[in-house]
Nucleic acid binder design. Structure first.
Lengths: 373, 373
DNA sequence: AACCACATTGAAATCGCTTTCATCGTTGAA
DNA sequence: TTCAACGATGAAAGCGATTTCAATGTGGTT
């Protein structure tokens, strides 16, 4: 039978309240009793029952974390940062993986509330509207992570800016025919990256025709779809993938097909996950401020929890700027291409696969010619 | 103010116990009262306070998971599998990341016990002895994951066998001069892989001299240390890294230095993490049965929790067999080398870096010549 | 009419802890 | 000597649930 505060008290010959006072230093004890209690605790190997304490205190010192998954490097990193920060601040992390299932996510949030968590860190996968609606009558403070939610506590990278940085980089290098590997646009973050990318491209008088975009769930598999883009005429000289994982998937096909990066084709990603630096050449990418995202989210939430009703911070929705990491996988376009006609149209020498551009040329004259300046 | 069972009872005009009966279907209610209660619950948006229930029931339906980190693909995968399985089984996961700190690990376990978790899944980073000792007087069921602990509930890959598989593969391909990139041997899993590797190699009359081993913490950085091995004479024709991450780190240096894999050098890893399949060529590796490890661990623990004192399963320590995944990064030795002399000693053509073998030849004559058959 | 069985409902104890506030010496000052 | 002040301790209430068991009402039997 587990030791309780009562059993300790009995052994020490004092009242339970005295033991409690000893534990919490909430009243001065004579040296003698203190010693007695101490010994009794040691003898029984007593540990306070936090469940009971929490019930009494109406505070659990625990925070629920709901996240689509933790195996993807990006989310994994975020989750790790948050757990660490929470532990430092004295909070226990209740981890919930939604596996991108809105139903599951919702029931997890409900469950966490039932468990009386002091707050919730949520990387939602549902539609924004739905989340907002169901969370309306929840009394627990919530901070949205990696999601932009106006008027709510939220913290997120400026994906739009990230998209622009990518576009500017590629355009500045002289690329005119650019392919896109993008996640589902229903994911807001992806949509914003694309949006930013397109917008900045326009400034250079460029665009990415529909045919030059491969869409799908953001994972390694999606990267493989790059083969579709490679068959296009003119062939893209640069690829922007909406995250690094996708870029790495594409990388594989590229190298297998005999392309040399960046000589034959430039490629860049988004996120800056750990392995990206370790590719050869290392992957150019738009880096998200992982630590800041996770760290700030926790701080925000903890402040919220500790503030109680009082003192609401000024800015609720924080947006962090990403940074461009120029590395080896992108290079200036060889012998400046003009007029939307790709030079160097031939496949690179050691090419194996990638069926050679069949006679079916795209009808659109100059599919990606510069827009009206 | 949050709704309690009492407030619901009052609104419904019944006693709290009746509401409880309604919630838990522990007594039959007349249709009328049931409806009343139901409406009151809906009206107040009442959700049971699991903290209070748990206190009363002396069961929290929560499991503590302590793991060195979740950002490494291997642990991340395991953690994800466990969380999923636990959620399915109705348990909340309390995640604790020890960050490879034994102190932290211990205090986390203690904390979890204080929180009255029903059980603990532990991937310990302390020394085995120390863990065993401090956990001796803990009353909560524990299952050790990815660690072999005789006489305790534990589940682990057969690392020794894994090492042997790797050695046999490389030896069979004809490699005679083999380099090792190994994690710290103080980590038992690593030690066992090495042990198995050495043993199997001996069967082929081979050995790996001390100079051909680079040691360090198992991460991307360690892989870079392969440069040390490349300067050896004779140069190794194959590399075994004790996990995939390390192999990938080495991969980078290798390719940067102009080596072609597997033409110029073979390399293999351990774990079979997701990206390994996506390298070009894909990485040969010894695959750990992730899902089985995580899944079985959860099942074992849940059984333990639910069995209570009764019925202890026969086998406490489960060992799972890894499988060899032969992929593209290993190949037969070109023109069989004999006598411990590496043929093809020259650097591959397009070599850039890797300072050429300076005149200082290793004194040991035939450092890795075949052992007595 | 008296009695009993059965179906509902609720009073009260309890889980393990915190916290208020009263109590009970002691002690120093008047 | 008396009293106020103080330091140390403990009795009891309460956090929000569950669960036992008694109480109540109903209807069917004899």
């Amino acid at each position: 039978m587990k030791a309780t505060i009562r059993s300790v008290a009995k052994l020490a010959g004092v009242a339970p309240s005295t033991v409690s006072h000893y534990l919490n230093q909430t009243a001065p004890l004579s040296a003698a009793t203190a010693k007695n209690v101490e010994q009794a605790i040691a003898a029984l190997n007593y540990r306070v029952n936090l469940g009971a304490r929490n019930l009494r205190l109406r505070k659990t010192n625990s925070i629920g974390v709901v996240i689509p998954n933790i195996t993807s490097p990006f989310f994994g990193e975020i989750a790790a940062v948050m757990e660490n920060k929470l532990w430092e601040r004295g909070f226990q992390t209740l981890l919930c993986i939604s596996e991108r299932s809105p139903e599951r996510e919702l029931s997890q949030v409900a469950h966490l509330v039932s468990r009386q968590v002091d707050g919730i860190l949520l990387v939602y996968c549902s539609q924004k509207s739905r989340v907002a609606e169901t969370l309306k009558n929840i009394s627990v403070p919530i901070v949205f992570v990696d999601r932009r939610v106006p008027d709510q506590y939220s913290i997120c990278t400026d994906n739009f800016l990230g998209g622009r940085l990518a576009a500017r980089h590629l355009a500045t290098l002289g690329h005119r025919v650019i392919g896109l590997l993008c996640g589902e646009p229903s994911v807001e973050n992806v949509a914003e990256r694309i949006e930013g990318f397109k917008l900045e491209l326009q400034r250079f008088g460029l665009e990415v025709p529909e045919a030059y975009r491969a869409k799908g769930r953001q994972d390694l598999q999606l990267g493989l779809r790059i083969t579709d883009l490679l068959q296009l005429e003119p062939r893209p000289t640069a690829i922007f993938a909406t995250n690094d994982i996708v870029a790495i998937g594409a990388w594989r096909k590229l190298v297998e097909s005999g392309f040399r990066i960046p000589r034959d084709i430039s490629i860049m990603g988004f996120d800056d996950i750990a392995i990206s630096r370790f590719l050869v050449p290392p992957l150019t990418t738009v880096a998200q401020p992982y630590r800041e995202i996770g760290g700030k989210a926790v701080e925000m939430l903890v402040d919220l929890v500790q503030a109680g009703e009082t003192a609401t911070p000024a800015e609720k929705s924080v947006i962090l700027a990403p940074t461009l990491k120029v590395r080896g996988s992108t290079a200036p376009l060889k012998k400046g291409g003009v007029d939307g006609k790709a030079i160097d149209g031939r496949l690179p020498e050691r090419t194996k696969a990638v069926s050679p551009p069949k006679s079916k040329r795209p009808t659109s004259k100059g599919a990606s010619r510069p827009l009206k300046s």
